[in-house]
């Protein structure tokens, strides 16, 4: 089956992104396809490479990047939600006159249309959040 996954909550504060990650990993292990993972609301904070969790805790951001690399996943951060919350790639930082970017490897920034298109192209859209 082909899935698009939507992640609506940030890392550590809320279990939604852990659950989304574990779901995606399990689905891939079972041979399913993940068409896209779309990060919305505070979920965009899953894509900052500046997090530094304690050593004895999971590294949620790195875990996404590694999964994306292993399975060539499309991790998309909503641009409107990202601008509100200060998540930027080099292009976004330049366009908005910011002095730095912070996007983690394997993520890209794009529009809400990518979420709708994921819903159209996939057999199931699975939402993780409150």
């Amino acid at each position: 089956m082909k899935f698009t996954v939507q992640v609506n909550e940030g890392p550590y504060q809320h279990q939604a992104s852990d659950s989304a990650y574990l779901f995606a990993k399990a689905a891939l292990e079972k041979g399913h396809e993940i068409y896209r993972i779309f990060f919305y609301h505070d979920g965009v904070n899953n894509g900052t490479r500046l997090t530094k969790p304690p050593q004895d805790d999971r590294n949620i951001v790195n875990r996404w990047s590694e999964l994306a690399e292993q399975h060539n996943l499309d991790l998309v951060i909503c641009v409107a939600a990202a601008q509100r919350r200060g998540i930027a790639d080099a292009d976004e930082a330049k366009r908005n006159g910011k002095d730095a970017d912070n996007i983690a490897p394997g993520f890209r920034i794009s529009g809400l249309g990518q979420l709708i298109e994921g819903g159209i192209q996939s057999d199931r859209l699975v939402v993780f959040g409150d």
């Binding site: 609506n8 919305y40 939600a81 809400l112």
Partner: peptide
């Protein structure tokens, strides 16, 4: 919370996809 506002933003963008 911001959920309602950002939900509405999805609806408006999604409208362009004629679903």
């Amino acid at each position: 919370t911001v959920y309602a506002l950002e939900s509405l933003e999805v609806v408006l963008i999604g409208a362009a996809f004629e679903q």
